[in-house]
Design a protein around this nucleic acid. Structure first.
Length: 325
DNA sequence: AACTTTACCAACCGCGATAGT
DNA sequence: AACTATCGCGGTTGGTAAAGT
């Protein structure tokens, strides 16, 4: 018996997501939280397969996603982690929680690979050591390297944790979202959840508005129309869905997104958390991707890990995949 | 201006892992 | 234990914009 298709091929929409689809999806997740993706298309009325919904959420709508140029620091981190972990994009992304694995993967393939190649051809030996050479490192060797890194991180974490409470990790981070971070606990971060999704959508919608109908990167004419529909009277897609959000709700959401975005731009995102609906906090719980704040992340993870596994450290043995975090 | 090539990135596809029955 | 359903990951593709000719 072959693998069943993840969804019926007929009647399943493909291609770029429209703003109203995004709104519907976010509205649903706001209410129910991420997970149980199988049910999402049916519950929302979206003609997308569950997989597509999940992907859209994790790669684009998920809270805390930072888009745009990668900083030099991020670049270095990616290069280092790729060197260390190989193409384990999800593992790498867990160190850069504001970036999706897809984003990192794309950035690696389109920018960093070339950059490294250039650098390498420029100075053969010196830089090569760090990168391509390591690709030839036998597995056992990079495992050891990984473990050494882990040990170092643990030690650093223990030191950081031992004197009372968390020193600032934020020192190295210039990202605005940092201001909302609380090192020792993930709870405060949760409130950013829906807002950040809205932020993402708002950003996208805004760019849609700016672009003339033809120039939209995605699905121009169709989406432009549907976009207008949302603005005017709510999405048609919503009405087709049995339990989807109402047109009025969509319009409201839509408008509030712009308000939201404006407030975002004038003040920083840390203020948002205060005005968010409580249910938004639910979302974070089921997330596979840990947290929002880039610098906090590795430490939160390590902290948890350290605390959880302090006793069974020796058992770690081979953990080829960083998923063991 | 028209055409071609290149760069970029969102989304898709297929596989493996894992939870549920 | 065996089977099925679902999720998550990594590789790849397809569409669009920008740059080049």
């Amino acid at each position: 018996m072959g693998r069943p298709p993840c969804c019926d091929k007929e009647g399943v929409k493909k291609g770029p997501w429209t703003p109203e689809e995004d709104i519907i999806l976010v509205s649903y997740i706001q209410e129910h939280g991420p997970g149980n993706w199988r049910a999402v298309p049916a519950k929302t009325g979206l003609s997308r397969c569950s997989k597509s919904c999940r992907l859209r959420w994790t790669n684009y709508l998920r809270p805390g996603i930072k888009r745009g140029n990668f900083t030099e620091q991020e670049e270095k981190m990616i290069i280092h982690l790729q060197d260390l972990l190989g193409n384990r994009w999800a593992a790498i992304a867990s160190y850069l929680p504001q970036r999706t694995d897809n984003d990192i993967k794309n950035y690696w393939n389109t920018h960093l690979k070339k950059k490294l190649k250039k650098l390498q051809s420029g100075c053969e030996g010196s830089l090569g050591e760090g990168f391509s050479a390591s690709r030839q490192i036998p597995r056992g060797q990079w495992e050891r390297r990984l473990q050494t890194d882990i040990q170092m991180a643990k030690r650093a974490l223990s030191e950081a944790l031992s004197p009372e409470k968390p020193p600032s990790l934020s020192a190295s981070n210039s990202n605005p979202s940092d201001s909302s971070s609380s090192f020792s606990s993930t709870k405060p971060i949760q409130s950013l959840c829906y807002a950040s999704s809205a932020e993402n959508i708002a950003r996208m919608l805004k760019s849609w508005m700016k672009k003339p109908p033809k120039s939209s990167r995605t699905n121009s004419s169709v989406t432009q129309n549907s976009f207008n529909n949302v603005a005017a009277s709510g999405a048609d897609t919503a009405s087709s869905g049995a339990e989807g959000p109402s047109s009025a709700e969509l319009s409201e959401n839509f408008e509030s997104l712009f308000d939201f975005d404006q407030s975002l731009e004038s003040s920083n995102s840390d203020q948002l958390s205060q005005s968010l609906s409580p249910e938004a906090t639910v979302l974070q719980d089921d997330e596979s991707k840990p947290d929002i704040c880039a610098e906090t992340m590795p430490f939160s993870l390590l902290e948890k890990w350290l605390l959880d596994e302090a006793g069974c450290q020796e058992k770690v043995g081979y953990c080829g995949d960083a998923k063991f975090f």
